[in-house]
C-alpha cells in the first residue's frame, strides 16, 4: 500500500511549511522512516530527500545520526511519553548536546539551563534536576522543544506538537514556537490536522488527503482562496469568532483507508461537487498555488462562495 503517494515538498530557509490532513493518513510514519526514526521493516520510502542540496535518503545510519538532533530537531505529539522517565530532564538535554558538540558536562548542563529558561520554564536552575514526571504536559512539551533546539537545528520537524495539550497550553506552545523560530532562524515542517494551527504559524501549506497532496500554496492564498473542496471542508471545521455561524461544518463521511484509495480523485466519494471527470486521477495544477481538483477556476470561485464564508482573519 502507499501511505503517502506523490508528495513533493521543499522547505526554504526560515520557512514554516504546514502539512495538514486528517489523522491516520501516514504523514508521520513516512516522515519518521525518512529520517530513520522508525525501524519498521515494512516501510520504505522511495524518491529523493535532499537536505542542503545533499541526498540523505538511504544514508547510512551513522551519517544520518549526525543530521538528526544536530541539523534536524524533532518535536513529538505526546510529551507525556516522549522523555525517558528515569533521567533528569537536564541530563537528557545535555546528552543530546554532548552527542553532537565537543563540550564538557558542565558546559552542556549550563546550556540546558539556558535552554529551559528560553522555552519559558520558570526556575530553570532548580527544574533542570527534576524528572519528567515532575513536570506538567505543557512543561514537558517545553522541555522537548528545548531539547530539539539544543544544537541550533536548521530544520525543526514538529509532529502535531499541540494535539495532546489543552487549549490554553496549545496557544502558549504555538506562541513559543513562533518566537523561537525567529530567534533561531530555523525552518519548520509542521504536521497537524488543525487548520487553526496552520493559519497561525505556516508560511506555506500542503493539504494532504489519503496520502496525496490536494492543495499546495502560500498560507494567505490557501486560507483566503482555497481551491480544493477538501480544504473548504477543513476550513469550515475551524471555529471562527467573527462570523455568526452557530454550527461548525463537518466533512461528510470518513477518511478513506490507505488500503483502498479510489482510482480517481481520492476525495470524490466524500465530495458533494463530484462529477464524471472525478473518476480520473487529478494532477496538481496551478501557478504557485496548486491544487488537484477537476473543477474549473470559475466553478471553484462560485461553489466556494456557497460553501464558505471567508473571514478576514487569515
Amino acid at each position: 500500500m502507499h501511505a503517502v503517494d506523490g508528495l513533493s515538498l521543499s522547505v526554504g530557509r526560515k520557512e514554516v511549511v504546514g502539512i495538514v490532513g486528517e489523522s491516520g493518513s501516514g504523514k508521520s510514519v513516512s516522515m519518521y522512516s525518512m529520517l530513520g526514526l522508525l525501524r519498521e521493516p515494512n516501510v520504505s520510502v522511495t524518491g529523493s530527500v535532499r537536505f542542503e542540496g545533499r541526498e540523505i535518503l538511504g544514508l547510512a545510519d551513522r551519517e544520518m545520526r549526525v543530521l538528526r538532533g544536530r541539523d534536524i530537531g524533532m518535536i513529538f505529539q505526546d510529551p507525556m511519553t516522549a522523555l525517558t522517565p528515569v533521567y533528569k530532564v537536564g541530563w537528557q538535554i545535555a546528552e543530546q548536546i554532548r552527542a553532537h558538540q565537543d563540550v564538557t558536562k558542565a558546559q552542556a548542563r549550563q546550556r540546558a539551563v539556558e535552554l529551559l529558561g528560553e522555552v519559558g520554564i520558570p526556575e530553570p536552575h532548580r527544574r533542570v534536576d527534576q524528572f519528567p514526571h515532575e513536570f506538567s504536559g505543557g512543561m514537558r512539551q517545553r522541555v522537548v522543544i528545548a531539547m530539539a533546539l539544543s544544537c541550533n537545528p536548521k530544520l525543526l520537524i514538529a509532529d502535531e506538537p499541540t494535539t495532546a495539550l489543552d487549549v490554553t497550553t496549545q496557544a502558549q506552545i504555538l506562541e513559543l514556537m513562533g518566537k523561537l523560530q525567529d530567534a533561531y532562524d530555523s525552518s519548520i515542517v509542521l504536521i497537524t490536522h488543525d487548520m487553526g494551527v496552520i493559519s497561525e504559524m505556516a508560511d506555506r501549506v500542503v493539504v494532504m488527503y489519503a496520502g496525496r497532496p490536494a492543495e499546495i500554496g502560500d498560507r494567505r492564498a490557501v486560507i483566503r482562496t482555497p481551491q480544493h473542496p477538501y480544504t473548504w471542508g477543513l476550513l469550515g471545521a475551524v471555529p471562527r469568532v467573527e462570523t455568526k455561524r452557530s454550527r461548525l461544518a463537518t466533512i461528510p463521511g470518513t477518511p478513506v483507508s490507505p488500503l483502498n484509495v479510489p482510482t480517481g480523485c481520492a476525495f470524490a466519494p466524500r465530495c458533494v461537487h463530484r462529477f464524471e471527470k472525478c473518476d480520473e486521477r487529478p494532477v496538481l495544477r496551478g501557478d504557485g498555488h496548486l491544487d488537484a481538483c477537476w473543477l474549473s477556476s470559475e466553478q471553484k470561485v462560485h461553489l466556494r462562495a456557497g460553501t464558505l464564508e471567508i473571514g478576514e482573519g487569515a
Partner: peptide, 23 residues
C-alpha cells in the same frame, strides 16, 4: 516513544539500547 525521541536526538543505537531501553 522515548526511544523514538532518543533516535531523534541522534544517539547511537548502542547508546539507545543500553542507556535508555536497558536502564
Amino acid at each position: 516513544d522515548y526511544v523514538r525521541t532518543a533516535r531523534a536526538k541522534g544517539l547511537s543505537e548502542r547508546r539507545i539500547l543500553l542507556r535508555h531501553a536497558l536502564r
